[in-house]
Amino acid sequence: MRRRAVAEGGYVHGYSPVEARRLNDQADALAALLHAGTTYPAGSRVLEAGCGVGAQTARLASGSPRAQITAVDVSEDSLAQARAHVAANVPEARVQWRCADLYELPFSDGMFDHVFVCFVLEHLKDPEGALEELRRVLRPGGTVTVIEGDHGSAFFHPDSAYARAAIDRQIQLQSAAGGNALIGRRLEPLLSAVGFADVAVRPCTVYADRARPGLVEGFTRNTFIAMVEAVRDNALTAGLTTRTEWDRGIADLYRTTEPGGTFHYTFFKAVAVNPGSPTHTRSTASGPWAVSCG
């Protein structure tokens, strides 16, 4: 779901086969962390907003095999890749595919029991407008689950000003494209502002070192560093860095994947309820949501 983002500069990561592979690597590496507790009952109507190439759709379908999933994206090309990916990995999946604009969904009010949104709001200039439309199609009492990252949560050893600068260039480019790579920290106020209730946000922390080689490879190398590397040409063209500074930054990021290196990043997972009434009083209880799920 990226029509407004495209109009204002484009999906900053691009639509190449390399990016599609990165998204699938990310979904595989983070499945246990991000999808823990996200299952939907048999027969429930679930909307995945902004399914992209289907990396998260496959996880939803395998985790809730009897739910009725509708996956929506604005790109026909992405939907074609998503269909193929899900068919190859979850052949019995019950998924309907729709090409539509997130801000003008072709669904009636209250049509869905649950809405799932993962790594979408960060690319939108108007995330509040998107959430308002998602609330419209969610029945009263239905839930929304939103997962986003926050590049400001990345820290690592050995520390490097060059590596931090490379990450900052990615943040700047995403902002110029109309998005926000720091949106994870905003989930509670965003959801509350558009009328969702019982908003509960928990941090999902990824920590990788030599004792966790799967995360070093699957997340640090193939997900995070690959994402930063992908904006190299745009960063140079925009005059945000020099080749020497950029290459040093990327080399220093890769140093965190070697023996003695460590890498940390936090995703934020929010669950909220559509109260169906503006007079609903939101719960302030935090309970176990306040602790890391990593």
Rank of each mutant, 00 (worst) to 15 (best):
A20C: 13
H35Y: 12
L215M: 13
F219R: 05
G10V: 02
A230C: 09
V74F: 15
E217F: 09
W246D: 09
D25C: 04
V46G: 00
V199S: 03
L33V: 11
A61V: 07
R243V: 08
P65A: 04
R255Q: 11
P41E: 05
V273E: 03
A67P: 11
V95I: 13
T256E: 01
W289I: 00
C204M: 09
D159H: 13
L182F: 06
E258F: 05
G218E: 05
C204R: 15
A235E: 14
T38P: 00
K125A: 14
F112T: 11
E104M: 05
A208D: 09
A42K: 02
E92K: 13
P278N: 09
V199Y: 07
H151N: 13
H13L: 14
F119H: 15
E217K: 15
D198M: 11
A71F: 01
D25E: 14
H151M: 15
K269L: 15
L173A: 00
E8K: 14
L182A: 05
A270E: 08
F156A: 11
T223G: 10
L30C: 06
G14N: 08
R66M: 15
S62W: 14
V18P: 01
R3N: 04
E122G: 07
A197P: 15
I147R: 06
R232W: 04
V18W: 11
T70K: 03
T223M: 10
F263W: 12
A272E: 02
T220M: 03
S160W: 14
H151W: 07
V72P: 12
Y265I: 05
A67C: 14
L47V: 07
R3I: 12
T242V: 08
V228Q: 07
R21C: 07
T220R: 06
T256H: 05
V53W: 00
R282C: 07
P140C: 15
V95F: 01
S78A: 07
T244W: 04
D126N: 12
D150K: 03
L173R: 03
I69W: 07
T257P: 14
D252M: 06
V120Q: 00
I225N: 10
G261C: 05
G9N: 03
Y103H: 11
R164V: 09
Q26D: 09
G54Y: 01
V90E: 10
V72Y: 02
G239Q: 12
L79I: 12
D73F: 02
A165H: 13
S16L: 04
G14C: 08
L33F: 09
T57L: 03
A270Y: 10
E8Q: 02
P41F: 05
I147Y: 04
G37W: 00
A200F: 14
L121R: 00
K125L: 10
A154F: 11
L190T: 01
Y162W: 10
G110H: 02
P275F: 05
A270G: 08
L253G: 07
Q68T: 12
G110M: 02
I250K: 10
S192G: 14
A32T: 14
R186G: 09
Q96L: 10
A84R: 08
T237Y: 10
T57Q: 00
I171A: 06
G141L: 02
T284V: 15
T57F: 01
